[in-house]
Simulated assay, not measured.
Amino acid sequence: MACPPSPADTPHPSSQAAGLLCASGPVTRERSGRSVLYRRTAVGDVLVGTG
């Protein structure tokens, strides 16, 4: 699933970092109601040494 862009009206540094991680592959992002869930991908597992 492609990562949707972060809202332009809230350029918080943590959301920018999460967007970068999502766009580069180590995590995926999906919405669950009003929450945003970030999950590590297989690429992320390899990067942290658990995959």
Rank of each mutant, 00 (worst) to 15 (best):
R29G: 00
S24E: 07
V36I: 08
P26D: 04
C3L: 09
S32R: 11
G44H: 11
V27C: 05
V36F: 06
T10H: 09
G33N: 04
A8S: 14
A42E: 15
S6N: 11
G49Q: 07
P5Q: 12
R40N: 01
T50P: 01
R31C: 00
V48H: 07
L37C: 07
Y38M: 07
A2D: 13
G49D: 13
Y38S: 01
A23T: 06
S6Q: 09
D9M: 09
S14W: 02
A8H: 10
L20G: 08
S14P: 01
A23Y: 03
G33V: 03
T41W: 03
V43I: 10
V48F: 09
D9F: 08
M1L: 02
C3R: 12
R39E: 00
P5K: 11
E30G: 04
V46Y: 05
T10P: 02
S14N: 12
V27W: 06
S32P: 00
V43N: 07
T10W: 08
S6H: 05
A17F: 06
Q16A: 15
T41I: 06
A2Y: 10
Y38H: 06
P13Q: 15
V36A: 08
V43C: 05
T28H: 00
G25W: 12
P26Q: 00
G25N: 06
R29A: 06
G25C: 07
T10G: 05
V48Y: 10
R40W: 01
M1P: 10
A17H: 04
G25A: 02
T41F: 01
Y38A: 04
A18K: 13
S15K: 13
R31M: 02
D45L: 05
S15W: 09
T50G: 03
S6G: 11
T41Q: 07
V43K: 12
S14F: 05
S32M: 00
V43G: 05
V43F: 09
C3S: 11
P13R: 15
A17G: 01
A2N: 12
V48A: 11
A17Y: 13
R29M: 07
V46C: 08
A42L: 08
L47S: 06
A8Q: 14
S32D: 13
L20R: 15
L47A: 15
P4C: 10
A18E: 12
D9E: 14
P13W: 15
G19A: 14
P26G: 04
S15H: 12
T10C: 04
V46Q: 14
R39H: 14
P13T: 09
V46R: 14
V36D: 11
E30K: 00
S15V: 10
G44W: 01
P26A: 02
A23S: 15
D45P: 03
S32K: 01
L21Q: 09
D9Y: 07
G33C: 06
C3Y: 13
Q16I: 15
P11I: 02
P5G: 15
P13K: 14
G44V: 03
P13A: 15
T28P: 00
A2S: 14
T28S: 00
V27E: 03
A42K: 13
D45V: 01
A42I: 03
T41E: 02
P11V: 08
G25E: 04
R29L: 03
L37G: 01
V46S: 10
L21M: 15
L37A: 04
C3T: 06
L21F: 08
S15L: 13
R29Q: 12
L37R: 10
D9P: 03
M1R: 12
E30D: 06
